[in-house]
Every structure is written in C-alpha cells, then in structure tokens.
C-alpha cells in the first residue's frame, strides 16, 4: 500500500529529542504491549492477531495523530473483531454480558509460555530449495511495482539501481502479492545516496535496505 507508514524520504516532520526513558511509560502502554506479545507468543489456532498490515491500514490522517502504542491498540482491536473473538459492542460495554467464544481446548499463554517465546530462536531463515539468483556485488534494479496490499519494499527504492551487499538465504516472504511467491531469497541491497535522492544525496553516503528476490531484477 502506498500510504503513510512508508515514510522514508519525507520532509517536514520535527525531529524529537533523543529521549532516554523506558519506552513503556503509561500503564495502558504496558498493558497493550503485554497483550500483543502474549497473543503473539501463543496464537489461537485460526486467528492471526494484529499485524503490521493492520497498522498500515490505519487512515493516514489518524496514523499521524496516534502515539506509537495506540497503533498497536488499534491493530489488536481490529484483529480480535475480524477473528470473531469479540464484538465492537462488547468493547464498548466491557462490563455488560460477554458472550462465550469457542476456542476449543485453547488455554491462554502463561507467564512461562511468554518468557520461553521471547527467548526462542526466532530466525526467519528457511531451508533453501532454489539457488539464489544474485550474488554479492551484482548490480540490480528494484522493480517499480505499487501493490495495493502489504509490501515491505519501500517506495524510495522502487525503480532504483543498487548493489547486492549480502545474501541472507531464504526468508519468509511477507508481501501480500503475489500470493504464490512462496519463500524467497533475501538480500541487503546498497544504494548510493545520489541514486535515491539526486542532488540532495551526499557522494559518500549509502543507504541499505533488505529486499526479497522477487522485488529485484538484474540491472541492464
């Protein structure tokens, strides 16, 4: 989606001071963080939970107006309603009657479950069944696609020429489209600042981004 979450290269925002606080300041922030990670650590079968794609679908004018953890709150609300775990009415009247929901023999994550999950080996690398198309040092061009669904290919890289800096093996592919892309080789691609930003780029500067093989084609 070409929307506000894809912020790289935009002007006009005011840079904040480098705060040194612990990021969970308010009690509700601690709760929504704990809730999101609890659900993530032990998902209910068939129920996906809040995702980055849910956050990206927040209307842009509201996205800019929301503090960070309010976006997580939004995503969790959207996800539980979409999953049929609860209704908007129940959220509006939490003290009223709450309908039971059939989650089979599911039991919620315990403190031990979440700690084990947070310390688990969370690599996204998967066994490779195909040879990588590119090698370190190869010149590539990022395809100029603008999918309507979720994509991890930032706009500022599209159509730009770069060099393969590192091959990470095969990783889970996260974009919505194409749905049949399967697992994909993942690369760090290095772009010259001038290639991305023209006269504003400094000759000495390089910007790196991770892109999946399907985002790239060999440079002509």
């Amino acid at each position: 989606m070409n929307t506000i979450h894809d912020l790289g290269g935009m002007d006009g925002f005011t840079l904040p001071a480098r705060d040194q606080d612990f990021p969970l300041r308010e009690e509700w922030e601690r709760q929504i963080w704990g809730l999101a990670l609890s659900v993530w650590s032990k998902p209910i079968p068939g129920y996906p939970g809040g995702t980055r794609a849910d956050i990206e679908r927040i209307p842009p004018e509201r996205y800019l107006d929301m503090p960070y953890f309010a976006k997580w709150l939004w995503a969790e609300e959207v996800a539980v309603i979409r999953g049929g775990l609860l209704s908007r009415e129940e959220l509006d009247n939490p003290d009223a009657y709450v309908a039971a929901v059939d989650v089979g023999d599911f039991t919620p994550a315990t403190p031990a479950d979440v700690v084990a999950f947070l310390q688990s080996d969370n690599s996204f690398e998967r066994p490779a069944t195909t040879e990588p198309r590119f090698r370190t040092g190869d010149e590539v061009v990022v395809k100029n696609n603008h999918p309507e669904g979720h994509t991890r290919c930032p706009r500022y890289t599209r159509g730009r020429r770069g060099v393969i800096n590192r091959h990470h093996g095969v990783h889970d592919y996260q974009d919505d489209q194409p749905a049949d892309a399967g697992k994909q080789h993942l690369y760090t691609v290095t772009f010259a600042a001038k290639e991305l930003w023209g006269d504003r780029g400094n000759d000495n500067d390089r910007i790196n981004a991770e892109l999946w093989e399907i985002h790239l084609e060999p440079a002509p």
């Binding site: 969970l24 601690r30 709760q31 963080w33 704990g34 809730l35 990670l37 609890s38 659900v39 650590s41 209910i44 775990l85 609860l86 709450v98 039971a100 929901v101 989650v103 599911f106 039991t107 919620p108 994550a109 315990t110 403190p111 031990a112 479950d113 979440v114 700690v115 947070l118």
Partner: peptide, 15 residues
Amino acid sequence: KNIIDPAAMDAVVDF
C-alpha cells in the same frame, strides 16, 4: 473469554 492471562501480560513487560 479466557483468551489472555493478565499474569502473562505482566511477564512480557517484566521481561
């Protein structure tokens, strides 16, 4: 609805 355990939420923050 027995979908989350508040004690697990606290464990996340503590972690």
